[in-house]
Simulated scan of single mutants.
Amino acid sequence: MIVYDVENFPNPLRVRIALAEKNALDAVTFQPVDVMNGEHRREAFLNKNPFAGVPVLELDDGTYIAECTAITEYIDHHFAGPSLTGETAKERAVISMMQRRAETQVLDAIATYFHHATDGLGPALETYQNIDWGQKQHTRALAGLAYFDNILAEQPYVAGEAFTMADITLWCGLVFGGFCNVSIPGDLTHLQAWYERVAKRPSIAA
């Protein structure tokens, strides 16, 4: 298997953490994509993912899987180890719900703020920007952080008692936030405690 990605970009980081949680980092080959020079927008890459995003997982039979949730689902079911996506119908539904909320309310909101209301990846790649929309997403992200602080006041992880892909998504959103100055407000103590605890997991600390 091959993972086409950019090391330390937020969405590729989600997949790398999932692989680490399943002790499967050595089972794949990582192929860097030169996003800063537009490689993701060239025909060779668009044949793998017509939406020009990383990461992309290439299976041994030539199948390409894009979108982090889909890649994580594949990783979780393909490799042995604790489940990241749930085992019962209820677990799967709750994890999927909370993962989606972490994605839309935090990670994607921060990403939109970054690409629209800051210099982002630079003028060569940021060909359209709407500053007002970016600032609105900054506000949305802060509301998302407050929401998850309330969730984590009642339970140890985003979707309940176990670490799942929902935690991975929220973690990567906060890492991205730190990069573009969207930090955890000081009064969100439950979210901060969760962040510090998750930072010590081997899959992340490494």
Rank of each mutant, 00 (worst) to 15 (best):
151 I>D: 07
128 Y>S: 05
106 V>M: 08
76 D>M: 04
127 T>S: 10
79 F>T: 01
142 L>P: 04
170 L>I: 12
114 F>H: 13
96 S>W: 08
105 Q>S: 14
62 G>Y: 06
74 Y>R: 11
172 C>P: 04
115 H>K: 13
45 F>Q: 00
180 C>Q: 00
105 Q>W: 11
63 T>V: 14
131 I>P: 05
90 K>W: 15
121 L>W: 08
91 E>S: 01
128 Y>W: 12
61 D>K: 10
50 P>Q: 10
104 T>M: 12
93 A>R: 10
135 Q>A: 06
178 G>Q: 12
134 G>N: 06
127 T>F: 09
186 G>D: 15
53 G>Q: 14
142 L>G: 02
63 T>Y: 10
118 T>M: 06
105 Q>L: 13
100 R>H: 12
58 E>W: 08
156 P>K: 06
110 I>R: 09
109 A>W: 04
129 Q>T: 14
56 V>N: 02
84 L>Y: 07
59 L>H: 11
120 G>P: 09
58 E>H: 09
72 T>L: 08
101 R>V: 02
131 I>Q: 08
135 Q>G: 00
71 I>G: 06
135 Q>E: 11
174 L>T: 01
76 D>R: 10
132 D>E: 15
184 I>P: 03
109 A>E: 01
70 A>W: 00
151 I>P: 07
57 L>R: 05
88 T>D: 07
172 C>S: 14
51 F>V: 06
184 I>W: 08
101 R>S: 07
184 I>F: 08
87 E>S: 10
174 L>I: 15
149 D>A: 05
60 D>F: 06
127 T>E: 02
101 R>E: 01
144 G>I: 02
123 P>R: 14
119 D>L: 05
86 G>F: 07
104 T>F: 13
47 N>P: 03
95 I>Q: 10
183 S>N: 10
69 T>V: 11
90 K>F: 11
101 R>T: 03
111 A>Y: 07
108 D>W: 09
60 D>S: 10
143 A>Q: 14
91 E>A: 06
58 E>I: 07
157 Y>G: 05
159 A>W: 00
124 A>K: 15
181 N>V: 10
63 T>G: 06
73 E>R: 13
88 T>Q: 04
187 D>E: 15
89 A>Y: 13
164 T>N: 04
98 M>Q: 13
69 T>F: 04
85 T>K: 01
173 G>Y: 05
51 F>K: 14
137 Q>L: 11
131 I>A: 11
62 G>H: 02
131 I>K: 15
117 A>T: 03
165 M>H: 08
186 G>Y: 09
101 R>L: 13
183 S>Q: 08
103 E>D: 14
160 G>F: 05
70 A>T: 14
111 A>P: 01
145 L>M: 15
183 S>V: 12
182 V>A: 11
141 A>W: 03
114 F>E: 06
117 A>Y: 05
128 Y>K: 13
72 T>W: 05
123 P>Y: 01
182 V>K: 01
179 F>V: 09
150 N>Y: 06
163 F>E: 00
132 D>T: 14
174 L>G: 00
96 S>A: 15
73 E>K: 11
51 F>H: 12
65 I>W: 05
52 A>M: 03
165 M>T: 09
182 V>E: 09
142 L>Q: 02
57 L>G: 04
128 Y>C: 02
148 F>V: 05
80 A>H: 04
98 M>Y: 14
149 D>G: 00
